[in-house]
Each structure stands twice: as C-alpha cells, then as structure tokens.
C-alpha cells in the first residue's frame, strides 16, 4: 500500500510518461549535446538508445503504450545520413504506417511522433522534446476509462 502511494506521488510529479527511442549515432548524440550545452529538457522523458532507427520495431512503440506510456517519441539520423545508409528509410515507412494505424485501436496519433535530429542539433533536440511534452500534456494522460 505504502509502495503504491509512493508510485502515485511520483506519477503526479512527473505528470506524463514519455518513452523516447533514439538512434545511437545521431539523435542520442544530439540529446547528449543538448545536455552538455545545459539546455533545459523536460524530465518526463525516458530515453532508450538503439543502434539505428531501423532497429525500432513498431511493436516497441505499441508495447510502450500498452505498458502505460503517455507518449512515444522516435528520433534518428536525417534521411541520407543514417550510419547504416538506409535504416531510417525503412523506419520511416514502418513508423508512418504505425502512426496512421494508432487511432484505429484507440490511441490518439498525436501521442506518437518520429523526428530526425543529428548529433550537432542539440538545440533542435531541445525544442523537439519541449514541444512534444507540451503536446502530450495538453492531451493528458493515456488513461483509458
């Protein structure tokens, strides 16, 4: 019981829970750069590092939602810049299909977004997350009644 209360409190603090999948070579480095430059970032985001956006199985995102995430963000290298040449091109197709599909199972598609952020774009990363978190907050928690 005590534990439950603690969890509840934490949830209140954090407000919304967001999972971000970042590719190792660009976006993760980009987020890192943002940190080094001391750009303020919202705390609601949990980052999971993956080798490439092409590694992201759409099921990762669905799993995150079914485990209680309020928003999921994916970020990889810009098209044509993928470390593995074309991982992000494959990813784009899958993720776009997933995004269009989400509303059909009762998930607001604004809860999901995929972005391209390079290693040098700390600034861009900051604005992406700030905007994304703002958007998720405006939709509210993903608490099905």
């Amino acid at each position: 019981m005590e534990k439950e209360n603690k969890v509840k409190e934490m949830e209140k603090e954090e407000d919304v829970k967001i999972i971000a999948f970042l590719c190792n070579w660009c976006s993760y480095a980009g987020a890192d750069a943002a940190g080094t430059a001391r750009l303020r970032q919202p705390e609601n985001i949990r980052i999971i590092r993956v080798p490439c956006s092409g590694r992201i199985n759409p099921l990762f995102i669905l799993k995150a939602f079914s485990s209680g995430a309020d928003g999921v963000l994916v970020s990889g290298c810009h098209p044509n810049d993928c470390h593995y040449t074309d991982g992000n091109f494959y990813a784009r197709r899958r993720l776009e299909a997933l995004k269009e599909y989400l509303p059909f199972i009762g998930i607001d598609k604004r809860r999901f977004s995929y972005q391209w952020v390079s290693a040098s774009e700390g600034q861009k990363w900051q604005s992406v997350v700030v905007n994304f978190v703002k958007r998720i907050k405006s939709i509210g928690k993903n608490e099905p009644k």
Binding site: D86, R93, N131
Partner: peptide, 19 residues
C-alpha cells in the same frame, strides 16, 4: 512488399515537424 523496401523521397508521407 512495401515495408521491405523504400524510396528516398516518399510522395505520400508528410513528415511532421515538431520544431
């Protein structure tokens, strides 16, 4: 199958800008 291939420019995908 479309998910096993790609185009560098996708005519029907409009990428979302979050910035």
């Amino acid at each position: 199958t479309p998910l096993l291939t790609y185009k560098t420019i996708e005519e029907n995908i409009e990428e979302e800008k979050l910035t």
